[in-house]
Nucleic acid binder design. Structure first.
Length: 423
RNA sequence: GUGGAUAUAGUUCAGGUGGCUAGAACGCCAGAUUGUGGCUCUGGAGGCCGUGGGUUCAAGUCCCACUAUCCACCCCA
């Protein structure tokens, strides 16, 4: 236990971190282009926020939250998703007094107590955006498009975008009733979990993977036919907008997000490279969350992208082959008597902005060269008797094996020229 | 929460029906005469064989429990 990371958590080693930095950089760039600004919220919140925001009856709140009492008895929960905390900030910091819409993005860890499997851990990370204040379907379009552009810029161009509308409170109630009525007589053929869902949350039956349930649903009423005029018009505008900006999508009436706050537009971006989990990005509109949490009535929309899942997809497609970080120079000294000279050179290089390393293991020159090759380094500077005496450094290009003599005082310009050429 | 598979060096894996002083490859370290890497050769370090019980003269090998990992269900990113 002492030397084991907790179940469902992972270490990111130095070879992996550059991949994350790369994805984060691209995400920040895209968000910037779309006018979204970064926000960072606490890792934990008061438990009530999630109970109220996500919904008491959801799986997340019922059984997946990392909840504990702090030393003064407050109930605290590690954030299981990114939207509710940002909505809380929006209210608490009165961001509704800023020019609307308020467009925010975040990169955050999330925590859910679940059994780990492919594409699912207990601590995972999300790239997310939220746009507050506008009911316009063009915001829905922007949110979906930002996700698509982001994934495209990473090199993924064939992911599938699926959209649906689950309507507002009113049309959803009508639809729920219709679905219940339809399924009631066929109740016997439903799988066991769906029998329970019939009363509790009939919408959830729609994305059941059980083949029997799927068969029954073939002739089931479709929510899109139960949308009120407002919701129908909104959905039409979203579809029109997506076509206008050339985002390919399909309408999938089976999409029902598992969080209670969604209204109208919901969407998923899915990939085949994720094992049983296929969703890499999920989101939609949530017009009542802010009000529900005590803020002014505020329509909003957003998405979350699973970073670990994104890594899986990118790696499956060979899109995360980031070259290892190279040192510019390794300063090798023949033996301890040249150590001081080597150190001075080392720090001169570092001060000048180069990345430079030296030996701390008391290795022989040969072993130092070997090490320089492995870390890896572009050049090795060799310091011995001749160099110290003449002030002319032996510089070896470790890629080509070529060796030159460079006067010590010209070293910086020499390196600058070489490295700028892309060596 | 449920089900299946797995658990041996840093890593990937060998170790039929119990008898090992537990192996290989890669990696790591050190050498192959005199100031130099990548290839090659030689040598070395490194394993409470997941943890705890049990069966047995004898257990890495059989049995049980626990834990962890992987996969799937549920659900989601």
């Amino acid at each position: 236990m002492l030397t084991k990371a907790p179940r469902g958590t992972r270490d990111l080693l130095p070879e992996e971190c550059p991949k994350w930095v790369f994805m984060e950089k691209v995400f920040r760039e895209i968000c910037g282009q779309f006018g979204y600004r970064e926000i960072r919220t606490p890792t934990f919140e008061h438990t009530e926020l999630f109970q109220r925001g996500i919904g008491e009856a959801t799986d997340i709140v019922e059984k997946e939250m990392y909840t504990f009492l702090d030393k003064s008895g407050r109930s605290i929960t590690l954030k299981p998703e990114g939207t509710a905390p940002v909505a809380r900030t929006y209210i608490e910091q009165k961001l509704y007094n800023k020019p609307l819409p308020v467009k925010l993005f975040y990169i955050t860890p999330c925590f859910r107590y679940e059994r780990p499997q492919a594409g699912r851990q207990r601590e995972f990370h999300q790239f997310g955006i939220e746009a507050f204040g506008s009911p316009s379907p063009l915001i829905d379009v922007e949110v979906i498009t930002l996700a698509v552009f982001f994934l495209k810029r990473l090199g993924l161009d064939s992911l599938e975008v699926r959209i649906n509308s689950i309507g507002c409170k009113r049309c959803r109630e009508d639809y729920k009733q219709a679905l219940k009525d339809f399924l009631f007589e066929k109740k016997g053929s439903l799988c066991n979990t769906c029998k329970l869902r019939l009363d509790k949350n009939p919408l959830r039956i729609l994305d059941c993977k059980d083949p029997c349930c799927q068969k029954l649903l073939k002739d089931a009423p479709v929510i899109l036919e139960y949308l009120c005029n407002d919701c129908r018009g909104h959905f039409d505008e979203v579809k029109k907008g997506l076509s206008a900006v050339d985002v390919k999508y399909s309408v999938d009436p089976g999409i029902v997000r598992g969080l209670d706050y969604y209204t109208k537009t919901v969407f998923e971006i899915i990939s085949e490279d994720l094992g049983a989990q296929s969703t890499v990005c999920g989101g939609g509109r949530y017009d009542h969350l802010v009000e529900e949490c005590g803020g002014p009535p505020t329509p909003a929309a957003g998405f979350g992208i699973g970073v670990e899942r994104l890594v899986m997809i990118l790696e499956a497609n060979g899109l995360l082959d980031i070259p290892p970080i190279q040192m510019d120079v390794f300063v090798a000294v023949l033996d301890e008597s040249y150590r001081d000279y080597g150190l001075q050179l080392l720090y001169r290089l570092r001060r000048a902005g180069f990345s430079a390393e030296t030996d701390y293991m008391g290795r022989s020159l040969k072993a130092q060269m070997k090490y320089a090759d492995k870390i890896p380094s572009k050049y090795a500077f060799i310091i011995g008797e001749d160099e110290v005496k003449t002030g002319i450094i032996t510089v070896k290009d470790l890629a080509t094996g070529e060796q030159e003599k460079v006067p010590s005082d010209k070293i910086e310009t020499y390196l600058k020229n070489k490295i700028r050429k892309g060596c």
